[in-house]
Write a protein that binds this DNA or RNA. Structure first.
Length: 927
RNA sequence: AGGCGCGUAGCUCAGUUGGUUAGAGCGCUUCCUUGACAUGGAAGAGGUCACCAGUUCGAAUCUGGUCGUGCCUACCA
């Protein structure tokens, strides 16, 4: 084995072997365990969030697979209607054409081409992460099986009256020419203006203070063209008398009524509100209440249409705004303009301002679906982790609006609805089926609806459509409901809630029993990663490494704002002067786990990743040591337990404790604690102590062969178990080493992946052995402390004198003398029954036992006095604290007896230690 | 405006139902190339647990409030 671990040399080959051998497929007859991947966009690429998510899922999958469960990780991708269509449209633009020129059929063909071409990108990256998903079952939301499920669901919901067509206001994206759902709109505060317009009163009416006009305030002047009324609050004394009067709508040559509605807040603005039912959600409601005309003034492009005055027709909505304000001003009707902050709704894909727009769309009536979906979480059939997300879920579900599912796109599932010439609707999978279902005469002309379904409609069916529904398949029976959904909070509404509703409706089962909600991956400073901030990290770059120039150009390529680019370049050069080193997949994964505590975002820390890369290297080198001692002569399992040294028994016991921690924490998704348990055990116990403790035995010419064999066996078998313990977290490294370790133990099996996970066995846990090795450690630490504090060269062997210990100390000493000599580098160990006879020395305590390193020629008395002084001071502080505590009667009376007893013991022990140290100090002083 | 989080070492984070001297990694200081590993080993330094009040024998932990900070939802034309 090489001296340094080189992940690059092994990872890809190992993965290819796993996949080729079919290890990712469900196996055996165990209880099923299934996770559905949240399908990434088929044309997308892997980012840090994906990396994190897949890493969590893979650990769960590998863990349960090794537990003997029949495990399926269902993989697949999403067609992502809007995102994908936009990418292809942009490409076409580059080729000097566009989708309209191509026509629908050709365009969709192009998208399929692009999907085939780029679709493998993200799946290749998933493989690099080591994700053990069953690629033979890869699905795509638009493949035939899933499309069939989509049709089936649509038709059944329609037939049940839960899907309907309606003419109402939607969020309209003027760039995409499609409706989008509320969830696809992001509102952010922007600087705008508040324009105060005067609407002249007609028929000689005046306001309470005698003005011949009323003033309204608006943030969207252009909507004036579609006004149907002006509203005031019914109890507003300033305007009460005007209710029912007419005002002139400026520039439009028509008059509109003044109406009363409690929607108006008299304290805001002027207390008068222009009402534009066709272009504002609130106004729409008011319009409905008062039966006002809906005047749509915009085309699908956001241009003023024929309903506007001629002067504005054909004008873009924002140009119109400017022109209209100018015109109002010159008409003397602009009272004032104020700066105003307002939330502007924008499409999350296009970034253009969304218009409330009146169109025909398809809707899912969600009320009936929501009930069971709420109940499933209430009664615990579905559990959120962390639990507090359930509140978010409830609050959203209980105030659910009907779901607009039609999109005016070409890429997606075409809506299975046909219209005859009268516009009558027929819903069926095909035209032929429609004729049959509705018994239509052959001469009835049918045309299919042009729209496609919202992408989330098909993803809502993901858990059961991927398993073959609507057929009653073996897979469905075996793997549904799935065990856990691992996803981010940002799509609880988009996806999780809708999956729950649809799955309950169509399978009668919950889609998953648990929902593990993880946090967002941010950069080391807690900033959201984004292109414009230039702080994006690519998981693949962290695995393979990347040189500075490539990183800079990657981060600054295709920047919209060049001044940002130079800033990003500078920051990048400062943060990564040498680029990013290769860390390997296992180190990246481990970093994710270590940061994956629940209920908070993850600030990705490069420093930590380096630490875990080092951990990988540590494992690698520990394995080298083990193989050095076992390769030539494979150890055999000891026939008698007595052959084991106390260190052998200790490390076996410690392994069990680590295993317990791992099991407990995986069950509650605490991967940070899982990773820490493995790290602590392997580095701080196995490497730091056990490997060192094995040396005195293996290198002792006097030790018998049975003892040596037992130690070599323990070295190897604990290593092998540790590899299995860690495999779900670091699959590649563990596989590589296991391949070498397993044969030495006579283990047959082609891969660690399919080996059983280590089994807990309480009989291996031994508090007595644990205490014994703790004793050894404490003595060694005490001696090392003396060495360190007093600067004794580590190369120098030193004598040690022990005294005042208990019988137990003596027993421990006898059994473990060799460990002390080797690990503390001792020349001799002498037991003094009478410490008064001890020569001048530096002293440390291990319990009551005094440990002395004679001073002669080694150390200066002053330094030793200072060291003792420090110890004494610390002890005194502690004694004072405990004394105060114990002299508090109420503490003694109220605290549990065990706690009081503990404090008393502590006081006694500290006082004894203090006495010993003081004596020592006096002794030194007399020199 | 409501809702949910967060605030612990220089940095990134743990800290179970209140109960030893509040932990880890990175960074820092000193020493060490000894036969697994310098991506290493040994020994250290470093924290008024944001602030205030309360409950309690006892609070990083529970309650209330303040400040700071992040996100989500709904929004006033």
């Amino acid at each position: 084995m090489d001296k340094t671990y080189d992940p690059h040399a092994i990872e890809t080959a190992i993965y290819q072997r796993w996949e080729k051998q079919g290890y990712f497929a469900p196996q055996g007859d165990g209880a099923s365990y299934c996770i559905m991947i949240p399908p990434p966009n088929v044309t997308g690429s892997l980012h840090m969030g994906h990396g994190f998510q897949e890493t969590i899922m893979d650990a769960l999958i590998r863990y349960h697979r090794m537990q003997g469960r029949k495990t399926l990780w269902q993989v697949g991708t999403d067609h992502a209607g809007i995102a994908t269509q936009m990418v292809v449209e942009r490409q076409l633009l580059g080729q000097g054409t566009n989708r309209k020129e191509l026509g629908r059929e050709k365009f969709v063909e192009k998208v399929w081409e692009w999907k085939e071409e780029s679709g493998s990108n993200i799946t290749r990256q998933l493989r690099r992460m080591g994700a053990s998903m069953d690629w033979t079952r890869e699905r795509f939301t638009m493949d035939p099986g899933l499309s069939k499920a989509v049709e089936e669901v649509f038709i059944r919901l329609y037939d049940d009256g839960l899907i309907y067509r309606g003419n109402r206001l939607v969020n309209w994206d003027c760039k995409l020419h499609t409706a989008i759902s509320d969830l696809e709109v992001v509102s952010e505060e922007e600087n705008g203006s508040f324009w105060y317009f005067r609407y002249p009163l007609l028929n000689g009416a005046t306001t309470a203070d005698g003005k011949p006009y009323i003033t309204i305030a608006t943030t969207r002047p252009e909507t004036l063209l579609g006004d149907s009324a002006v509203a005031v609050h019914p109890d507003d004394d300033r305007f009460k008398h005007l209710i029912g009067q007419q005002v002139e709508l400026p520039l439009c040559n028509r008059s509109i009524p003044i109406i009363a509605d409690t929607y108006v807040d008299p304290a805001f603005g002027t207390g008068c509100v222009k009402i534009t039912p066709a272009h504002d959600f609130n106004d729409y409601e008011v319009g409905q209440r008062h039966k006002l005309p809906m005047i749509n003034i915009l085309t699908k492009d956001g241009v003023i249409n024929e309903n506007g005055p001629i002067a504005y027709q054909g004008m873009d909505r924002f140009d119109c705004r400017k022109q209209l304000v100018r015109d109002m001003e010159s008409a003397g009707l602009l009272e004032k303009v104020e700066d105003h902050k307002l939330k502007v709704p924008r499409g999350d894909r296009t970034g253009v301002v969304i218009e409330p727009y009146l169109t025909q769309q398809w809707y899912v009536a969600v009320a009936e679906l929501a009930g069971p979906a709420i109940a499933a979480v209430e009664n615990g059939s579905i559990e959120f982790v962390p639990k507090n997300w359930e509140n978010t879920y409830f609050s959203w579900m209980r105030d659910l609006q009907d779901w607009c599912i039609s999109r005016q796109l070409w890429w997606g599932h075409r809506i299975p609805a046909w219209y005859d010439l009268d516009g009558k609707i027929y819903v069926a999978p095909t035209e032929e089926a429609a004729r049959k279902k509705y018994q239509l005469a052959a001469d009835v002309v049918l045309t299919q609806d042009e729209d496609v379904l919202d992408t989330w409609f098909s993803s809502a069916l993901w858990t059961f459509s991927t398993l073959g529904w609507p057929e009653d398949t073996e897979e469905l029976r075996t793997f549904h409901p799935t065990d856990v959904l691992v996803t981010g909070f940002d799509i609880i509404f988009f996806w999780v809630a809708r999956m729950i509703m649809m799955t309950l409706r169509f399978t009668g089962e919950v889609p998953f029993k648990k929902v593990y909600i993880h946090g967002l991956v941010r950069d080391g400073e807690g900033q959201k990663m984004s292109k414009s901030k230039g702080n994006i990290l690519d998981p693949i770059d962290l695995i393979d490494g990347i040189d500075l120039e490539s990183l800079v150009s990657k981060r600054t390529d295709s920047m919209m704002q060049p001044q940002l680019a130079s800033k990003i370049e500078k920051a990048t050069r400062k943060q990564f002067p040498d680029g990013i080193a290769a860390h390997g997949t296992d180190a990246l994964r481990y970093t994710y786990y270590s940061l994956a505590s629940t209920g908070r975002d993850i600030n990705f820390d490069m420093g930590r990743m380096e630490g875990y890369r080092n951990f990988c290297n540590k494992i690698w080198n520990a394995a080298r040591y083990v193989f050095m001692n076992t390769e030539e002569l494979a150890p055999t399992q000891p026939t008698d337990k007595s052959h084991y040294s106390s260190a052998d028994l200790w490390i076996q016991s410690r392994f069990q404790l680590a295993l317990q921690k791992v099991n407990e924490n995986i069950a509650v998704f605490r991967f940070d604690l899982v990773s820490q348990a493995v790290y602590d055990f392997f580095w701080n116990e196995y490497c730091d102590w056990y490997l060192e403790l094995s040396k005195p035995i293996l290198w002792d010419a006097n030790a018998n062969e049975e003892q040596k064999n037992a130690t070599r066996y323990t070295l190897l078998s604990v290593l092998e178990q540790s590899l299995r313990l860690a495999h779900p977290l670091m699959p590649f490294l563990t596989e590589e080493i296991w391949q070498k370790a397993a044969p030495l133990l006579g283990i047959t099996g082609d891969t660690i992946m399919l080996q059983p996970y280590p089994q807990t066995d309480d009989s291996i846990i031994s508090p007595a052995v644990d205490a014994e090795i703790e004793w050894v450690k404490s003595v060694i630490l005490a001696i090392r402390n003396i060495r360190g504090e007093l600067n004794v060269s580590p190369a120098k062997t030193i004598p040690v004198l022990l005294s005042k210990g208990s019988a137990k100390d003596q027993t421990h000493l006898q059994a473990n003398r060799q460990y002390l000599v080797k690990l503390a580098k001792l020349e001799s160990i002498t037991w003094f029954d009478d410490s008064a006879l001890a020569p001048p020395a530096s002293m440390q305590l291990a319990g009551e036992m005094e440990i002395r390193v004679p001073l002669a020629g080694l150390i200066d008395v002053k330094a030793e006095q200072a060291r003792l002084g420090k110890e004494i001071e610390k002890l005194q502080g502690e004694i004072t604290r405990v004394n105060t505590q114990l002299s508090n009667e109420r503490f003694v009376a109220n605290a549990p007896p065990a706690v009081v007893a503990k404090e008393r013991e502590r006081l006694a022990a500290n006082e004894a230690s203090l006495l010993q140290l003081n004596e020592q100090l006096v002794k030194l002083g007399s020199l």
